[in-house]
Structures are given as C-alpha cells and as structure tokens.
Amino acid sequence: MPKIFPTPPPGFDDLTVEERIDFVQSLWDRIATTPEQVPVPEWHRRIIRERLKAYREHPVAGRSWTEVRADIERKLRER
C-alpha cells in the first residue's frame, strides 16, 4: 500500500510561488535520477506510436528542432 502524504506538505503554503516551483523542481530532479523507475502510461506510448507513424508517412511535414526552438525563443522575448 502506498504511503499517504499530506497535501501539500507542512509549510508549503507559506512559501513564495518561486519557492514552491523550486521545491517541486527539486522533487522532480530526485525522481529523474532513476528514469528507469518512472512509469510510462500506455496512452503516452500510444501517442508516440501515432506520431512516429505520421512522421514516417510524411517526414517533411514537420519542422526541425532549430525552427521550433527559434519560435519559442522569439515568443519568450515578445512577452
């Protein structure tokens, strides 16, 4: 039976938003040190299979990572 933890942990609501984000990031960083233990839901696998199939059928339909990243960086600068 999984352990039950108080939600949120004591003192969490007293943190600033930035501190809360840092806290959650540190939790994820700890989990990510063992990626082989992170379960991958079947619906994630299904989406990956669908996207790989679409890519194989139309490999030139997408955009490169360089293009996507440039768009993201441009949008962030415009904020």
Rank of each mutant, 00 (worst) to 15 (best):
E73M: 13
G62E: 02
H44G: 05
L52C: 08
T7Y: 13
T7C: 13
E19L: 11
W28E: 07
I31N: 08
T33L: 13
L15C: 05
V68E: 02
I21F: 01
H58C: 02
P39H: 11
R30L: 08
E50D: 11
V60P: 00
W43H: 11
R79T: 06
P2G: 10
V24E: 02
F12V: 07
D71R: 15
R45V: 04
Q25N: 12
D13I: 04
S64C: 04
R63L: 12
P10E: 14
R63Y: 09
L52E: 11
H58D: 04
G11M: 09
T66W: 10
I48E: 11
L15V: 02
R56G: 06
K53Y: 06
V60Q: 09
R51W: 03
V17P: 00
W65R: 08
A70T: 08
V68Q: 02
T34P: 00
I47A: 10
A32F: 08
W43F: 04
L52V: 14
K53P: 00
Q37E: 14
Q25V: 10
K3F: 12
P39A: 12
P2W: 08
E67F: 12
I47Q: 09
L27V: 10
W28M: 12
V17N: 03
D71F: 03
R20P: 06
L15E: 05
I21A: 04
F23S: 04
P8T: 15
T66Q: 14
F23C: 03
M1Q: 10
K3G: 03
E18P: 03
I48Q: 15
E18K: 12
G11W: 08
P2A: 15
L52M: 12
E57M: 03
E18W: 07
H44K: 10
A61R: 09
V38W: 01
I21L: 08
E57Y: 01
K75T: 06
V17C: 08
Y55V: 04
V24Y: 00
R63T: 13
K75N: 13
S64V: 05
D29R: 11
Y55M: 03
L27I: 12
D71C: 05
T34V: 07
H58M: 03
